[in-house]
Computed example of a mutant assay.
Amino acid sequence: MSFSISNFLSDPFAITTVSFGLISAIIAIAGAGAANQSDFPHFSWWGIVYQIVVIIIILLLYLCNTIELYKFTLVGLISIAFIYNTNSINWLIYTTNDSGFLCCAAGCILLSIVNLIWILYFGGHPESPTNQFIDSFSLKSHNHGHLNSNHNLDDDNYVNVNPVTLPHHSSSSNLQVGSPQFQDNNLRQSQLTTNNRSTNTPYMSSSQLNGLENFSSSDVRDLNNSNPPNSFRYKAKALYSYDANPEDINEISFFKDEILEVEDIEGKWWQARRSNGQVGICPSNYVKLLD
């Protein structure tokens, strides 16, 4: 848990809804204070105070970057506030024409609107259309981003990976020009050059991997062992279980509460490694960085 004002300021949805909620609560309090207290319903005062407490809780969760962990709890708390506000609106509007009553009712109507928005957002799945649209404006890389099985994202949202280095054969200098071994070696070298020049796509396609099937098992072991063991600097905990897209060989599946080693955490898809050594990419809004 990292308390930072940037966690809140980097999310336009949080800034808009929390600010709108605070302004609405101020309007409701001003109207309640100006109303005739002998006729003013006491449960409306309690509903306004309860609503302010809920708004403060949401603000603190955003500041601590733990809003994802309490979404379902917030739905219950906000639903109670929504009921208080709607009951107050019905009482304040139809009881009297006092200006204080009507001002408080206007504040409660605005609070009901923001509560309804919060219920739809916090109660929705991260892949729902409404959540995807709202999260598209967020400046944060986690949090409740849009998942696309085809990864049709901007290039700077992709995970950067180190270029694959093919194993070096010390015996290549002894190959005779024109021999099948010599031609095969040249083919591998040309494919390596092509792959290293392909900077527009972070992962090699199946067409770029043609020729690798000619390597022996020892070559594959050398290739796997060439990755630095400490290249994953961070650890993350899975918030939900995730099943990899079977059509994308770059994705990995994982279970809820599983600890992953991650790297390149700036985009919506992070490079990750499971405890069994499986390496691939995972959606950033399904995991949470550990301190």
Rank of each mutant, 00 (worst) to 15 (best):
I5Q: 09
L9R: 05
D11N: 09
F13V: 08
T16N: 04
G21L: 07
G21A: 15
A30L: 14
A30R: 11
A32W: 01
A34I: 03
A35M: 02
S44P: 00
I48G: 05
V54L: 08
I55V: 13
Y62K: 15
Y62D: 12
Y70V: 13
Y70P: 04
F72H: 14
L74K: 06
S79F: 10
I80T: 10
N85V: 00
T86I: 15
I89R: 02
T95P: 09
T95G: 11
N97L: 14
F101E: 08
A105G: 13
A106R: 09
C108Q: 12
L116T: 06
L120V: 01
Y121Q: 04
S128F: 06
T130H: 06
Q132F: 02
D135E: 09
D135A: 14
D135C: 08
D135I: 01
F137G: 04
N143Y: 00
N150T: 12
H151P: 05
N160E: 10
V161L: 08
P163W: 02
V164H: 01
L175V: 06
Q176W: 04
D184H: 11
D184V: 07
N186S: 07
L187V: 11
Q189P: 05
Q191G: 15
L192T: 14
T193Q: 12
R197D: 15
T199G: 14
P202G: 15
M204K: 09
S205Q: 13
R221W: 11
F232I: 06
R233I: 10
K235A: 12
K237G: 00
D243F: 07
N250T: 14
L260I: 06
E263W: 02
E263P: 01
I265N: 10
E266D: 11
W269K: 01
A272T: 03
G277N: 08
Q278G: 05
C282G: 06
C282W: 00
